[in-house]
């Protein structure tokens, strides 16, 4: 089998995943985008492995690792998103975080500029 097809599929997955990550404000959809990217990585690994005929089977092993990690990620992510939903009532990623307001407190006199004479 030509490697072109799986690689093209991987590229397609990457594109879709990037779109998901970049364009979706919904947290879960973003998560799906990430999963697509991971899938592309796995696909590439497996393809390359079969293509190169490596004896150690590193490619498939790594793919399995990625899948496992992805599962773990999803668990944590969903837990966090759930908590977010409980707190805010939405899982929109395009909302300013509450605590991100900068503290510009009073001590700027520490480095006043030299005034012109």
């Amino acid at each position: 089998m030509s490697p072109a097809l799986p690689m093209m599929l991987a590229a397609l997955l990457v594109g879709a995943g990037l779109y998901g990550v970049l364009a979706r404000r919904h947290a879960v959809l973003m998560l799906i985008g990430v999963e697509l990217l991971l899938a592309a990585a796995g696909l590439m690994l497996v393809t390359a492995d079969s293509l190169l005929g490596a004896e150690t089977g590193s490619g498939p092993v790594a793919t399995i690792f990625i899948i496992t990690i992805a599962a773990a990620e999803v668990v944590v992510a969903l837990a966090v998103f759930t908590a977010l939903y409980r707190l805010r009532g939405h899982v929109d990623l395009d909302v300013r975080a509450a605590a991100a307001e900068p503290d510009r407190s009073d001590f700027d006199e520490a480095d006043g500029e030299v005034p012109a004479r």
Binding site: L18, L22, R25, A27, L93, D94, R96, A97
Partner: peptide, 12 residues
């Protein structure tokens, strides 16, 4: 960026 979406955009 203070919103996750924006930071992701910045990252990518």
């Amino acid at each position: 960026p203070t919103r996750p979406a924006k930071s992701l955009a910045l990252l990518l």
